[in-house]
């Protein structure tokens, strides 16, 4: 048989496999996909900032409607009353939209902190109440949290956080993560506000304080103590949720003058 091969052919190597370096392929993909994801995250952030304030405030209520203030322990009763008194004073001057309602909550925690979340719920810890002695100082903290609610920061932060995580879950193909996002547990309380939100809230808070009190002495008390105590246990939490404390104190002091 003349057409029967006597041996197997030697095929060229680059038919079935690529001869280009695998790292080159990887880097091109990484940069390309990175750019696309970056653009996506940026546009989601912008969308969340501009569109989420259009969500009616009553919708936020539905999410965290069932949140009830548990009975405050006996030793803290006096502090709680002080909190309520200052809160009512500040709330009157906060010039909220008519459909916005605020709820103040006392938290039995030694870590000095305060935060605002969906539905106009504001939490102040026992740790903060015992640290901040002056009413003006406490009022400044409460006014700051009210300002977050007023500017619709919680829903902006939530929308952005959830959307970005959702996009990541879709890209990474992690369905379990996407499902856990929808459940309202945990994540809603730990909303992260960005620097601009904090500055905006401080600015509004100072305006509210100026309307509520005749003298502004001690309005920066919390921020001053926070900076002094920086690094000691319990305070590191505050700095994780509220960065740039030093820069903010400078701005607040300027605004108070």
């Amino acid at each position: 048989m003349s057409n029967y091969p006597s041996e197997n052919p030697q095929l060229p190597e680059d038919i079935n496999i690529s001869t280009s370096h695998p790292l080159k392929d990887f880097l091109v993909l990484l940069v390309g996909v990175g750019c696309i994801v970056g653009l996506l995250v940026l546009s989601i952030s912008l969308l969340a900032t501009y569109l989420s304030p259009l969500v009616p405030f009553s919708w936020e209520h539905q999410v965290l409607e069932s949140w009830q203030q548990p009975a405050v322990d006996e030793p803290y009763q006096q502090e709680f009353e002080r909190l309520l008194r200052v809160f009512k004073l500040v709330e009157k001057q906060s010039e909220l939209e008519t459909d916005m309602t605020l709820h103040i909550h006392h938290m039995d925690s030694e870590i000095p902190n305060a935060f605002a979340t969906l539905g106009g719920h504001i939490f102040v810890t026992q740790g903060l109440l015992s640290q901040v002695q002056s009413d003006t100082g406490l009022a400044m903290v409460i006014a700051h949290e009210i300002a977050h609610v007023k500017h619709r920061h919680p829903i902006q932060a939530l929308s952005r956080g959830v959307l970005i995580q959702l996009v990541m879950a879709v890209i990474l193909g992690d369905n379990g993560m996407a499902n856990s996002l929808i459940s309202p547990s945990g994540t809603m309380l730990a909303l992260k506000f960005n620097r601009d939100m904090e500055y905006q809230a401080d600015e509004t808070a100072v305006a509210i304080i100026k309307r509520s009190f005749e003298t502004l002495d001690g309005a920066d008390e919390f921020f001053r103590i926070a900076l002094e105590e920086h690094g000691s246990s319990g305070w590191s939490d505050v700095f994780q949720t509220h960065p740039d404390m030093a820069a903010r104190l400078v701005r607040i002091r300027q605004a108070l003058k």
Binding site: N16, I17, S18, S20, P22, D25, F26, L29, L30, G32, V33, I171
Partner: peptide, 25 residues
Amino acid sequence: YFKVVVAGLRSLVGGRMTSYESLLD
């Protein structure tokens, strides 16, 4: 792991999965 990551990135945009081509070859 490297091949999996490259293939994962590639599967987002499409094209030749060169990292798996050499494996199958």
